[in-house]
Nucleic acid binder design. Structure first.
Lengths: 116, 116
DNA sequence: TGGTAAGATCGACACACGTCGATGTGACTC
DNA sequence: GAGTCACATCGACGTGTGTCGATCTTACCA
């Protein structure tokens, strides 16, 4: 049985994630590609740390990510975009700052797809 | 609190996986690197399908993977090695054939690290 | 209007990775 | 021992990705 959650990104686009559980039955190519795309967003140490920082707080400003991550501003911006495109975090522009928060439902959907 | 499971690979090496949950607190670099390494093994559509085929059966022979995956023998061998190195599957050589089975504990550990 | 500050985008570079033909390595059969 | 089969390893190729300096865009303030 497919496990899907609706996720709303910065641009208000919604999309599905994802996929029967890996352990239940052989995945078809489309489901495998979808799931691999989300996992690729997670499969980077900098993005994992970024996500953990955002998830540990109700809201985090981009400006508070550069120092803990030890990466340049363009690099941090790149990683927030990847995580946001994957639906794992969402950003809200307020004035000059962008505030990020985690989407725990998305993470839960991934756990389910991984046989949860 | 760290979530660890011992995993035994083909070469009898054992290692730990892994890591406080991403959602609990900011990950340090070492934990993030460990988790990213395992997730990288999963973040490929061919390997996800391979794992789902192996996990759906008590045991699968390498020779029964080429056709469903539509990949050459060296490519399949490469992917089984990546999954085995990550502890997600284990292989046993019997005569001319290698038989693979999934390690559900490892997948469960990843789910926990993902905030399960 | 001009200046500054936060963040996104661009361009370039180095490196990692998926893929497959060719070849190597054991194991089985005759 | 010769031949064959299953699988691993090697080498090479094209592509994808993380990184950062430079630049663009937008918002705020004097």
């Amino acid at each position: 049985m497919p496990v899907k959650t609706k996720v709303k990104a910065l641009d208000e686009r919604t999309y599905d994630v994802c996929c029967p559980a890996v352990t239940a039955a052989p995945l078809d190519e489309a489901d495998a590609t979808d799931l691999a795309r989300v996992l690729s967003a997670l499969a980077d140490p900098v993005r994992l740390r970024l996500l953990s920082i955002v998830a540990s707080s109700p809201e985090v400003c981009s400006c508070d990510l550069e120092n803990p991550l030890g990466k340049s501003q363009p690099t941090v911006s790149h990683h927030t975009k990847v995580l946001a495109d994957a639906g794992l975090i969402s950003g809200e522009r307020r004035g000059k700052w962008t505030w990020w928060h985690a989407n725990p439902d998305r993470l839960a959907a991934i756990r389910t797809a991984l046989g949860g």
